[in-house]
C-alpha cells in the first residue's frame, strides 16, 4: 500500500458518481469534471504502481492482485483516450466504476510477495506483460462499448429512443465500428503477447510452449476472438450479434483470468513467491 492508493480510489469514486449523474441528467454539465477526476485517478494510480515497482524492483505484476491493479490502470488509460478522442462520455459511467472496483478488490485481496523470482526477471517481462494487459484492457472496453450498443439497440427496436440530451447517445454505427476496432487491436496485442511469451519461455526454459493452464486459456481466448473477428468479415455478424458475442467471449476471458490465477498458481497465476 502506498500513499497514492487512497487518492486514486477517491478520484475514481468521484469520477464514477459524476459520470453517472452526468448521464442521467443528460445536460452534460459535468462531463469535463468527470473526465478530469478519472484522469486524476489514473495519475495517482500510476504513481502507486511506480512506487510499488520501485519497491519490488520490477514491474508490479508479481501476483494476481498486482496484476489486477495494473490491468485496471491500463483500462482507465485506454478508456480516457476513448472518452476524449471519440467523445464517448457514456462509457465513463461503466469504465470508472469498473476500474474503481478492480482497484478496490486488488487492494482488499492484497497479499504475497511483490518480488519476482530471479528466473523471471528479464527484459521480456515488461514487454510480455504490457502487451497482454493492453490487449485485455481493449477487450474490457470492447465489452463496455458492446453493453452500450445493446442498450441503445434495445431502445431503438422498442421505439423508445433517447433523442434528447446535449450529448445524445452515440449512434449504433459508431459503437459497432469502435467495438470492431477495439477487438482488432486487442487481438493483435494478444497475439503479440502470446508470441513474446513463447519466445521468453524458449529463452528461459528452452521450450516455447508447456501447456500450463494460463497458456492453454490464452490460446482458447485467442481462438474465440479470432472467430469473432472472422464472423464479422465473412458472414457479416455485426451489430447486436457481434455485441452479444463480444460480451460472451469477454466473460470467458474474465473467467480464465480469475480462475487460472486463483486455482492454478503456476508461473502465471497466483503468487510466485
Amino acid at each position: 500500500m502506498t500513499i497514492w492508493l487512497l487518492p486514486a480510489l477517491i478520484c475514481y469514486a468521484v469520477a464514477s458518481v459524476l459520470f453517472a449523474v452526468d448521464f442521467s441528467t443528460r445536460v452534460q454539465r459535468l462531463t469535463g469534471y468527470a473526465v478530469s477526476a478519472l484522469a486524476a485517478g489514473a495519475v495517482c494510480h500510476a504513481l502507486d504502481l511506480i512506487a510499488r515497482g520501485v519497491q519490488a524492483g520490477n514491474i508490479p505484476v508479481a501476483n494476481f492482485t498486482q496484476a489486477l491493479s495494473f490491468l485496471a490502470w491500463v483500462t482507465a488509460l485506454a478508456g480516457l483516450i476513448l472518452i476524449v478522442r471519440l467523445r464517448l462520455a457514456v462509457i465513463g459511467a461503466l469504465v470508472a466504476p469498473s476500474v474503481l472496483i478492480a482497484l478496490g478488490a486488488s487492494e482488499a485481496m492484497a497479499g504475497g510477495s511483490g518480488t519476482l523470482p530471479s528466473a523471471l526477471r528479464s527484459i521480456w517481462l515488461p514487454v510480455h506483460v504490457t502487451l497482454a494487459f493492453a490487449g485485455e484492457a481493449l477487450f474490457v472496453l470492447a465489452a463496455t462499448v458492446s453493453l452500450v450498443y445493446l442498450f441503445q439497440e434495445s431502445r431503438l427496436k422498442a421505439h423508445r429512443p433517447m433523442l434528447s440530451g446535449h450529448g445524445t447517445m452515440p449512434s449504433l454505427e459508431k459503437l459497432d465500428r469502435i467495438n470492431y476496432r477495439l477487438l482488432g487491436w486487442g487481438f493483435l496485442l494478444l497475439t503479440l503477447a502470446i508470441l513474446s511469451g513463447a519466445l521468453w519461455a524458449q529463452h528461459t526454459w528452452g521450450r516455447f510452449w508447456s501447456w500450463e493452464p494460463r497458456e492453454s486459456w490464452s490460446l482458447i481466448t485467442w481462438v474465440l476472438y479470432a472467430a469473432l473477428l472472422e464472423s464479422r468479415l465473412t458472414v457479416g455478424w455485426r451489430g447486436r450479434r457481434a455485441a452479444t458475442l463480444t460480451i460472451v467471449v469477454f466473460a470467458v476471458l474474465v473467467g480464465s483470468f480469475v480462475g487460472v490465477s486463483l486455482l492454478y498458481p503456476g508461473k502465471h497465476g497466483g503468487s510466485f513467491g
Binding site: L156, P161, L163, L172, E173
Partner: peptide, 10 residues
C-alpha cells in the same frame, strides 16, 4: 431524422 442519426454515424 433524429432516429437516423441514432443509427448511422455519418
Amino acid at each position: 431524422i433524429n432516429l437516423a442519426k441514432q443509427i448511422f454515424d455519418s
